[in-house]
């Protein structure tokens, strides 16, 4: 446990010091969302209607950006091999790295989402459901993305490949994440959606680190 936290702290420090990955992800998120009013027109009703979808899809894309390097950097400089040899199970290492990635990239996205939602003329009562849905959904995306990131270690065309692998797997999260916000928009109870999102998270929490660790072991063989 303590060692897991150490890795978490190391990864967070690295992310903060370089700062580029998470900053780039948030910048991408803001820019992409800001492009939509130009693409579909600035009509407030229209933007309010499709706002939750825009925010979810762009958040998904933005989290793909930083995932590409999740294991590749450590693989390149050899520290992944050392981590795999450490007494700590590789699954715990993977969980620590995913947690660090989520804190460094997804949390800023979640913080930025309500502001962007207001810019898209979303009514104030959906802000809390939106933040909660993102809070429950993005860890699952990070977990799925970690499997993808582990699978592409050492491959020739990483970034595009990662999106190709992870985005289809993330569709259920997207459906229920948008569903929660839409339900709140129509005044329906959003609770079932949150429960399903939580169920996805609970299912992904043991399975994804295990699959990612298996993929990393193969990459190191």
């Amino acid at each position: 446990m303590r060692r897991t936290l150490l890795i978490l702290r190391r990864d967070l420090r690295l992310a903060l010091r370089q700062g580029s990955d998470s900053f780039a992800a948030v910048m991408f998120f803001v820019m992409a969302v800001a492009l939509f009013p130009f693409g579909v027109g600035p009509e407030p009703n229209m933007l309010a209607r499709i706002g939750s979808g825009i925010l979810w899809v762009t958040a998904l894309m933005a989290s793909m950006l930083a995932l590409e390097r999740l294991f590749q950097n450590d693989y390149d400089d050899g520290s992944l091999e050392l981590l795999a040899l450490a007494p700590l199970p590789l699954e715990a290492v993977v969980i620590a790295k995913i947690a660090a990635h989520w804190i460094a990239t997804a949390l800023p996205l979640i913080a930025a989402a309500p502001v962007l939602a207001l810019l898209l003329h979303a009514p104030a009562e959906i802000l809390a459901p939106l933040a909660l849905a993102l809070l429950l959904g993005t860890p699952t995306i990070s977990l799925l993305g970690a499997v993808g990131a582990a699978l592409i270690i050492g491959s020739r065309r990483g970034g595009v490949l990662l999106s190709l692998l992870v985005l289809p797997l993330a569709i259920p999260v997207l459906i229920f994440g948008v569903g929660a916000v839409e339900a709140a928009l129509m005044g329906l109870p959003a609770r079932p959606y949150f429960l399903v999102l939580a169920a996805f998270l609970l299912a992904a929490l043991p399975l994804c680190p295990w699959a990612a660790a298996a993929a990393i072991r193969q990459a190191l063989e």
């Binding site: 499997v147 592409i152 050492g154 298996a214 993929a215 193969q218």
Partner: peptide
Amino acid sequence: GAFDDRERAQKSAAVL
């Protein structure tokens, strides 16, 4: 098809 190492390509694809 994304790996130079055949073994690795097969195993990664299998996990996917």
